[in-house]
Design a protein around this nucleic acid. Structure first.
Length: 270
DNA sequence: AAACTGATCAACCGCAGAACA
DNA sequence: GTGTTCTGCGGTTGATCAGTT
């Protein structure tokens, strides 16, 4: 026997919600609280299905929702969380106070995706769209003379972050699932990778001498951000980042390095 | 002014998994 | 242990708006 529909579709309204429907829903939830979505419409006198009521409340009527444009910090956080979690919009939304999964999902599809593509970054893998990507057993830079493409070197072994490292929470089940999905999604992704512009001989080696490193945040064009943690200040970092003259510049993929170890706890809400 | 196009976002749909009998 | 119900999630659709021709 198949599953019964969540509501009688022939007797329910669809489409945009009216002010009156919103008022009814708000009034009902104020008195009775959230939950029992299946029975809520009837009890509240709404000709809507429970799912529709839940969605309307969660995405638009909840009093704790933050409306308006996303800030640069929120942008950065979404990008970082998406690079770690993929399309886990509800989890991502849980890290952004006042934002809903639907809102973030829409924002990702309409703004951030394009932003990353414009930067030459694949929004699915968070890796450069163009350039030679090669796998190496060591961290030596790949040589691509007279080229302006970005080269990525991967080094073994693959390190998969644990959930508590990402979110600061301990959960064995999530831990195992996430690690498996991580491997499944990015089989060749080494989180200890280094990104390097093309190697060119006789180029300015000042950056090597001074040890200038550019962070992932800057690589995304989010200069001056609070998460810019280049070893130099942002001017040195972003100047270096925009320098196509080459030089063995390297930085950690997430730009979250602390003493060589990725610090995912920084992804927690400030 | 009208037609067209692309961007945005609210809402819907189907599915998976949790909860319950 | 099994079947049914309910909830929540992610993908997708379609209405609306703004900009362009």
């Amino acid at each position: 026997m198949g599953r019964s529909p969540c509501c009688e579709k022939s007797h329910t309204n669809k489409g945009a919600w009216t002010k009156e429907e919103d008022d009814r829903l708000i009034a009902y939830i104020k008195v009775h609280g959230e939950g029992c979505w299946r029975s809520l419409p009837k009890a509240a006198g709404l000709l809507r299905c429970g799912k529709s009521c839940r969605l309307r409340w969660i995405n638009y009527l909840r009093p704790d929702l933050k409306r308006g444009n996303f800030t640069e910090q929120e942008d950065e956080l979404i990008i970082k969380l998406h690079s770690l979690l993929g399309n886990k919009w509800s989890i991502i939304a849980g890290r952004l106070a006042g934002r809903t999964d639907n809102e973030i999902k829409n924002y990702w599809n309409t703004h951030i995706k394009r932003k990353l593509l414009n930067k030459g970054i694949d929004p699915l893998t968070h890796r450069p769209l163009i350039g030679n990507i090669s796998s190496h057993s060591d961290s030596s830079p790949t040589t691509t003379p007279n080229s302006t493409t970005t080269t990525i070197s991967f080094s073994a072994p693959i390190k998969i972050p644990k959930k508590e490292e990402i979110l600061g929470i301990k959960d064995e089940k999530f831990d195992q699932n996430m690690r498996e999905k991580w491997i499944e999604r990015c089989p060749d992704l080494n989180l200890d990778l280094r990104i390097s512009p093309p190697y060119q001989q006789n180029n300015n080696t000042d950056n090597i001498k001074t040890g200038t490193r550019i962070c992932f945040t800057c690589s995304l064009g989010l200069e001056k951000s609070q998460d810019c943690n280049c070893s130099q200040n942002w001017v040195a970092c972003c100047t270096t980042n925009n320098n196509n003259n080459g030089g063995s510049i390297s930085y950690d993929f997430f730009g979250l390095t602390t003493n060589g170890a990725l610090d995912y706890r920084r992804l927690e809400m400030m």
